[in-house]
Amino acid sequence: MNAICKNCGQEINGNFCSKCGQSADTHPINLHYLWHDIQHGVFHFDKGLLYTAKELFTRPGHSIREFIEGKRVSHFKPTAMIFLLGSFYGLLYHYFHIEIPDNTASGDSKQATQIMSNWIIEHYALATLFTIPLISIASFFSFWKRGYNLVEHLVLNSFIAGQKLMLQFVFFPLLYIFNGSKTMLLLSGISILIDFLLAIWTYNQFFNTQSTLRNLLRTLLTYVYFFILTVIISTVMEMFINGNH
């Protein structure tokens, strides 16, 4: 006798429901279920967060392109990955009381910058998500002849954002050691440089139907567009903050 799907009521002939996709084998919700779910979603090297991390640091562009083309079962979803990593990173900042060293700005500009910096730290996942549409618009116009739509660029840059968040965890012990010192500015600069080199590598693999030189130039153009958009939005935000103080 075939099983009945507990999700939609459809008769199941096999391991999964042909109507909604739910597994025929459902387990009771208990600690074993919870641990099994965490293992499959986060710790398995063949599926989940660790698998996605391995792919993003061994063959990033190829794996992201395969995800967009439909090979998605093994990957941790990019938006969920950003929320998970960004939220945990923000918690680490608060728990270890990481302090950003004073910058050289003064007056209203310094106050506005400090307010924005504090907000970014307190809402790291959201701040990361907010940058994705900007860099995606930039990459869309830089690589528009490659045939990928804006939503696909959003997916591409969401994975790259996750890649950058993973890199931040590598740098975090150094941030803790040099907490509040000017060395943090140097570490931030090194992190940004590595981020940029990873982006070049990822874009070059992803858009592998054209030359490396062309990909490099279009990646540089992407960051120019992104910088312009960021400056415009930052200027508007600073004017708004100053207008309310």
Rank of each mutant, 00 (worst) to 15 (best):
H36G: 05
L49D: 04
L34V: 15
I68W: 03
D25H: 11
F76W: 08
F67S: 05
I64Y: 08
F76Q: 00
H27Q: 13
L50H: 07
D46T: 13
K47Q: 14
F67C: 01
D25N: 14
V42G: 03
H27P: 00
T52Y: 06
E66F: 00
K54T: 12
D46K: 10
K47L: 10
L31H: 05
G61M: 05
I38V: 12
H40E: 11
L31N: 12
E66V: 00
I29V: 14
I64V: 12
H40R: 15
R59E: 12
K71I: 06
R59H: 15
D46M: 06
H40Q: 15
L34P: 01
Y33P: 03
G48K: 10
V73W: 02
G41L: 06
W35V: 08
H32N: 14
F76N: 01
S63L: 00
T52I: 06
L50Y: 05
T58R: 04
L56E: 01
F43G: 00
F57V: 01
T52F: 09
F57A: 04
L50D: 00
I64M: 09
H62I: 15
L56R: 02
G61N: 06
R59A: 13
V73T: 14
Y33I: 00
A24Q: 10
S74L: 03
K47C: 14
A53E: 06
F76C: 04
L49P: 05
A24M: 08
L56Y: 03
N30W: 10
W35P: 00
G41Q: 07
A24V: 06
E66H: 10
I29Q: 08
G41H: 11
Y51K: 04
H36M: 13
F57T: 04
H27Y: 13
E55I: 03
I29N: 05
H75D: 07
D25R: 09
I64P: 02
R72F: 04
V73Q: 14
W35D: 01
H32T: 15
L49V: 06
A53M: 07
L50P: 03
E55Y: 00
F76V: 01
G41E: 08
D37S: 12
H44G: 10
G61D: 11
H40Y: 14
E55T: 07
H36W: 09
Q39T: 05
H62K: 12
E66M: 06
E55C: 13
R65E: 09
I29G: 07
F57D: 01
I38H: 11
G48H: 13
I38K: 01
I68L: 08
H36A: 13
T58H: 02
K54Q: 09
T26R: 10
F45T: 10
F45I: 09
S74E: 14
G48L: 08
D46A: 11
R59G: 15
H62R: 12
K54L: 13
P60K: 09
Y51C: 05
Y51G: 04
H32A: 15
E69Q: 13
Y33T: 02
G41C: 04
S74Q: 13
G70T: 06
W35S: 07
Y33K: 04
R59C: 10
G48F: 11
P60C: 08
W35M: 15
T58M: 03
L34A: 12
G61T: 10
L50Q: 02
G70I: 10
H75Q: 08
W35Q: 08
I64H: 11
H40T: 15
G70E: 06
P28H: 11
G61V: 09
A53R: 02
A24I: 07
I68G: 02
